[in-house]
Amino acid sequence: MSEIVVKDLCKTFNQNTDTVDALKNINLTIETGDIYGIIGMSGAGKSTLVRCFNFLEKPTSGEVWIGNKNLSALSEKELRAERSEIAMIFQSFNLLMQKNVIDNVCFPLRLQKISKADARKRAKELLEIVGLSEKEKAYPAQLSGGQRQRVAIARALANKPRILLCDEATSALDPQTTASILELLRDINKKLGITIVVITHQMSVVSEICNKVAIIEKGEVVENGLVEDVFNHPKSSAARELILRGDNEKTGGIVETINAERKIRIVFTENSSYEPVIANMVLKFQTAVNILRADTRNVGGVAKGEMILGLPEDTTLQENIISYLRERGLEIEEVTGDV
């Protein structure tokens, strides 16, 4: 079943005399149970897009369907009721700083007029889920970033939502904390069956937990599909850039100065990792290739090797190398420009 369907969505902002097209003709379908990544550079419009999913931003035109409800057709009151089914977490956590952990988690329950005792009971269960039971009396200022995001997640889950929107939820966290929060999100998706939408600028986040991804650039969806397909064969330049450049913090920047004449990107699937393909290739052709980059990543739970090779100048030799690698079942793709 489709959980979120976006049809021809446009959003225009009026800034004084200028109009800015933040989103142009977005069409997306997110299925129940998906962990759907929406990735793009900052300013691409992804945060605006996710706010259209719960109508914190009203689209200029187009439709957003949540389940079988068209959000633009709802009254303000119905919309508020619907929002309790669509939870959201944020980069800056957005907890009530003057309330302690348990009162923060109770907050959305109290909004729904649930009695104090019932709300507390539910809040305790939620804090159990996110692993913060012993912190219920602490105030947000006394917690670390990761703990604060856990409280925010508990609060988001309070009203048993069907959808959880994550707006750069791990961008303010260090890599270890990010990993543990992503694990928690994956757990929530599996155990509670909540559809998750992840907004991020980090490819590592998408490859870590998402099953589907949409790449958004300058307000348009330039590519979408299964994470594995997009990762293996990025079609758009934006996708390529995000995949190749995406993890600057991990690789410490990418070789931009090395300008081999022809470069190819190889993705190793499970089977190909057993054979020492590159070494065999070098032995066979008796020529050196320049390894510009090599990396292993976890894409949807599967280890994927990735390598960028600078090929020798001889064009027939280049073609031979490429066909040799193709025969070994590797995903090959040409890379142009500075990688």
């Binding site: 719960n54 914190l56 929002r83 609060r155």
Partner: peptide
Amino acid sequence: DPGVIEAAKSMGASNLDIVFHV
């Protein structure tokens, strides 16, 4: 913090809720 107000809105809080409880 406008973010906290936005979070309350995302939970379905009415304007009165936001004024008095946030």
